[in-house]
Nucleic acid binder design. Structure first.
Lengths: 352, 352
DNA sequence: CTGTTAGCGCGTTCAC
DNA sequence: GTGAACGCGCTAACAG
């Protein structure tokens, strides 16, 4: 375990100074005699020189690294976002330091501190913490932040929103236009702005089409995520479906707050011998990769996860590079993805 | 954007020296008068001090960070592994720098260099690159490596293997014991040791039970992953199933090289009006989280992804902490996960 | 117990 | 064009 060569070693071997070596090896545009330049490069290659970024960072105070905090990489929605972030970061010479908060406020705070200690200058975050004090304090300290997924009120940062209400509205309207009137809702607890908005969209659509709201058709989970819990949503879907099936009048369609929960719904319906979509239609939300893989392929609302990641990262890097000074707010739009889990009651009635 | 306070600022304010401040704030066990200790802590809190890890790293030459290289976080098998790695790393005070190679050798090499530049002292890697020279060179430079998933020949590193052959054997044997004789195999191209081993396991089992090998039942993809390609495996499953269905005698069961491909298989069978498992049974491999969510829930071979990540990380950190000096080789064992996608021909015959 | 000092590896003045 | 010298923030060695 011998020490790695530094620019000092190279300077000695190439019979020059560390300054010149640095100028050559860090691709500076400082003028250096081309003969000498080549010699230095040659020696560097000979000794298998690998620059020590720690030294450079300390000097330049620029880590070229951004932080990303998400609930869990295990959730395909977030992993797609991270992929988008990474692709852009890489293409622009930045690196990504990824943190899974596991929906734990403590862990989120811990990671926030770590990122800051590691001299990250930018942050893309889906925050779970109700306490925005730390985040706010960091913004003061010249940390650029782009928030997504979960809107953060009163924080001096850029935000990427998604029109959840409209998504909820469009999904419900889609079902209505397919002739459904008894449309159930299955949702995770309404503890976050995004979920509340989807819920509102559902109510708005029913209202707009003069469909009476039947509370027995609305199943909302009471138990929130445990921290670190896995496949919570899937099991939620199963449980809520059981509750739903207990009501006397079965719905003809179910709108589910996200695809993962919808998998649980379809699983349970199937177990109970109820065919999707023949007996009950299922509409999801998110359009994660697996939605098209299940049987029947899930009709759902597209949330542009990968694009969202790219957008967030470009935004952040533009800020870091000084191309943007103002904070920006962007609202991404939903889109219906038409597959096979929803029955068209109109046309199926015609057939009969 | 004013400069962040450093230990120097604190020393000035607390009327002491940087050395003492460092001793207090870095939780050194060096003796400091408790009165002074408290004063320093108080001042640090006042100015909202956050240590600059870059400075510490440069001095101590210890980044407390390990690198992880995997094909893609988007694949749930790898995301589970990463989760396991992270959980252990965090509990032991380390951080993880994650890299998605997207199965691109160039990108893998680029990340390898980056990790080294960032002074990572340990690496957990599922390498895709056929050229192990760079990896080998880095091992020489006091970089500890734990390889998993893809075995690396002749590399001075610890390795975590999985008994793919045995897994393939067990899966096939399981089908045989359920009364299946016409057992098809659907596999990604045999371009990696793991896949070849699964294939061998399949052949071994058939041989052992004196079942003649029918080449028309063996469908192996000819096209390899494109770099950066997504849902390749799913589409592979669809395509290979189509090919399979063209053969005159349909199998009673299909063994698929991984769960994601199995989803494609089930999808296509369904589309062709073939019931799983009533007409054709499907056996997967990996047991990713979604296997239990589809309909019917997939019977498969468990590869302990999360545990594998934890094991790999503990191993690496033990090496870094000097608790282990020797390289170790571990062979993890497969386990059948019994769900509903395989029909028991024996008992179903009894019923008729 | 505490302070002074000397680097860790690098990029950047500022002279020459 | 080039090199000597300094300092980024921190810890370790040593002296007191």
């Amino acid at each position: 375990m011998k020490k790695h060569p530094t620019i000092y070693d190279i300077a000695k071997k190439a019979d020059t100074s560390t300054a010149t070596v640095s100028r050559v090896l860090s691709n500076s545009d400082y003028p250096v005699r081309s003969e000498l330049r080549e010699k230095i490069k040659k020696v560097a290659k000979e000794v298998n020189y690998i620059p020590n970024m720690i030294g450079r960072q300390l000097k330049t105070n620029n880590s070229m690294t951004i932080g990303v905090i998400i609930p869990s990489i295990t959730n395909p929605f977030y992993s797609s976002i991270v992929l988008g972030i990474e692709d852009i970061a890489r293409s622009r010479g930045y690196h990504v330091f990824l943190c899974n908060s596991h929906r734990s406020p403590q862990l989120e705070e811990e990671y926030l501190k770590t990122l800051f200690e590691k001299q990250v200058k930018g942050l893309i975050v889906s925050s779970i913490s109700p306490d925005k004090n730390l985040l706010g304090a960091l913004v003061q300290k010249d940390l650029n932040i782009v928030a997504f997924d979960q809107t953060i009120e009163g924080l001096n940062s850029s935000q990427i929103h998604f029109d959840y209400r409209k998504g909820g509205y469009m999904a419900t309207e889609y079902l209505i236009k397919k002739g459904h009137r008894k449309i159930a809702l299955i949702s995770s607890p309404l503890t976050r702005p995004s979920r509340i908005s989807v819920y509102k969209g559902y109510l708005n659509a029913l209202e707009n089409y003069n469909i009476e709201i039947d509370k027995s058709l609305i199943q909302i989970a009471s138990r929130e995520y445990e921290e670190f819990e896995r496949s919570y949503e899937f099991r939620n879907g199963i449980e809520l479906t059981r509750n739903l099936l207990k009501c006397s009048e079965l719905p003809t369609a179910v709108f589910v707050c996200n695809d993962m929960t919808a998998f649980g719904v379809m699983n349970e319906l199937n177990k109970q011998g109820i065919n999707v979509p023949e007996q009950i239609s299922v509409m999801g939300f998110d359009n994660i990769e697996f939605s098209e893989m299940i049987t029947p392929p899930l009709t759902t609302v597209q949330q542009p996860d990968y694009e969202m990641g790219k957008l967030a990262c470009n935004l952040l890097l533009d800020q870091l590079d000084g191309k943007i000074v103002e904070n920006v707010d962007i609202m991404l739009q939903p889109r219906i993805v038409n597959r096979s889990s929803v029955l068209d009651l109109e046309s199926s009635l015609l057939k009969n």
